[in-house]
């Protein structure tokens, strides 16, 4: 194993991880606020939410859930691989994770463009003529899945940086905090989707 830094560098991985967790808490409350708004309006306009949610494609939602669950496993496995010093496998698994994230986004693209074709997008005429409850549902749908998709993109960028760092050797079996924290972030993206999926796609 080659050592790149000859000077003794101290990396406090425990604190680094704690910082990441605290950041994840703020993320949870960011989405939590939206979940709360959703819950209250769902209680208020249950019939309209029921009707509007029926427009969503549960199959695409289920497929995306499977993609994210798989990617969560591959990123967790990449951490195992780097801890065991298997660089090639770690690289491969991070790459698979990025690929699955890409598939999620492609799916999302088709899902959204299908909605757009029916004129269902923020500010559209179709939406303006809908009932107040349906309008709120689609507003929340675009806000929540949009914010989540943004997190998927950020996750893809983070994982790509890890590919570079694993290649260069700065993420290795002794220093893997970057990969560990990126994996934590990626799992959070999965966690949020686990709640979004039944709330938006299943309970119609």
């Amino acid at each position: 194993m080659s050592v790149h830094n000859t000077h003794s560098e101290h990396i406090d991985s425990e604190t680094g991880k704690l910082g990441m967790w605290i950041f994840l808490f703020t993320e949870l409350f960011l989405f939590g606020g939206l979940f709360l708004v959703y819950a209250v309006f769902r209680a208020k306009y249950s019939a309209e939410f029921h009707l509007a949610a029926g427009e969503l494609n549960a199959f695409i939602g289920t497929m995306n859930t499977v993609f994210l669950l798989f990617s969560s496993m591959t990123v967790a496995m990449s951490l195992t691989a780097i801890q065991k010093g298997d660089r090639k496998l770690a690289l491969f698994l991070v790459f698979v994770t990025i690929l699955l994230a890409g598939l999620f986004m492609v799916n999302k693209y088709f899902e959204w463009s299908h909605k757009f074709e029916y004129g269902i997008y923020p500010g559209s005429e179709v939406l303006k003529n809908m009932s107040h409850g349906e309008l709120l549902f689609f507003g929340l749908y675009y806000m929540m899945t949009g914010l989540h998709a943004l997190h998927v993109l950020v996750g893809m960028v983070l994982l790509s940086i890890n590919v570079v760092k694993i290649r260069s050797g700065s993420v290795n079996s002794d220093h893997y905090l970057m990969l560990e924290n990126s994996a934590l972030y990626w799992h959070l993206v999965d966690l949020i989707w686990i709640f979004l999926f039944p709330l938006l796609y299943l309970i119609t």
Binding site: F195, F197, I203
Partner: peptide, 18 residues
């Protein structure tokens, strides 16, 4: 039921994957 299952899944991810 959907929320209970989602919570179980979230706990599983937190405990094992994270």
């Amino acid at each position: 039921v959907a929320l209970i299952i989602a919570s179980v899944k979230v706990a599983t991810v937190l405990i094992n994957f994270m």
